[in-house]
């Protein structure tokens, strides 16, 4: 059974259709890249999965649960099983690295324990292990505004991992990074996929990166899914279809 089953997903903002009639399935352990020009619906798509954006129509079945029907605590519980990584890291910069990482546990916490940062020893140990794994062992008590872009993004990854997620959604994780930091981040994402078996859905602007790292690519244009296949089948012709003819020169290099 598919881990994520999206059926006829539609999202419209008044007249404009951000997503129209999108259907696809993602199995456990896949590394899927989502590509397309700005405004093609990539961001809307992954935010519909954890309901940060309410879909207008269609179904999203995650791990056997219909996401669109969930409310309140039930929705929180399912969101806790879905990690998310952002382009701008979205950390609380006044707090330390470990405090930010432990925010990933809030989805499993009651009101009092969450408000007063009462985390179990086991949770804290888990967070430290993940930080060591991501090479941040020396920076545990550093305030997040003191970190470099690549380090901030690794804290973001750690926050997602501490959730014990079944899937991680990445919204342009390397768009704000320099090439070498971007490479490190993509390598970590791949490592998480292969070593921990966590499914990855990554929005990307860089086609070469998508080709190199992912097993499968979804291509969007104006809210419609125009390509869905293994990354080696993404032909030049298909790239034209996704990005439009005028983008041809940009992507030939």
């Amino acid at each position: 059974m598919a881990l994520l089953d999206v059926r006829k997903l539609t999202k419209s903002y008044g007249e404009t259709q951000a997503l129209s009639d999108v259907s696809f399935q993602i199995s456990k352990g896949e590394f899927v890249s989502v590509i397309g020009p700005s405004g093609s619906g990539k961001t809307t798509l992954i935010r519909c999965v954890n309901r940060l954006i309410e879909p207008s129509a269609g179904e999203i079945v995650f791990d056997g649960k219909e996401m669109t029907a969930l409310r309140g605590p039930e929705l929180r519980r399912e969101r806790a099983r879905i990690g998310m990584i952002f382009q701008h890291y979205n950390l609380v910069y006044r707090l330390t690295v470990i405090e930010n990482v432990l925010h990933g546990r809030l989805g499993y916490k009651g009101a009092i324990k969450g408000v007063f940062s009462m985390y179990d020893e086991q949770e804290k140990r888990h967070a430290l292990e993940i930080l060591e794994l991501l090479g941040l062992g020396e920076l545990v008590y550093r305030r997040c505004d003191m970190l470099s872009g690549g380090q901030k993004q690794r804290v973001g990854i750690a926050r997602a991992l501490v959730q014990n997620p079944r899937i991680i959604l990445c919204d342009e994780p390397i768009s704000s990074l320099d090439p070498s930091s971007a490479r490190i981040i993509m390598d970590y994402l791949l490592k998480i996929r292969t070593e921990m078996g966590i499914t990855m859905v990554v929005n990307l602007h860089q086609i070469d990166v998508a080709r190199k790292y992912s097993s499968r690519i979804l291509g969007f244009n104006k809210g419609t899914l125009v390509f869905d296949g293994p990354s080696d089948q993404l032909s030049q012709q298909k790239i034209y279809e996704i990005y439009g003819a005028e983008a041809g020169e940009l992507i030939n290099d």
Partner: peptide, 19 residues
């Protein structure tokens, strides 16, 4: 984005305010 990140991880309103 910070609020969005915590919402995405399943944090409640009180958690977001306090954390």
């Amino acid at each position: 984005g910070v609020i969005e990140a915590l919402r995405a991880s399943g944090a409640s309103w009180l958690h977001i305010v306090s954390q």
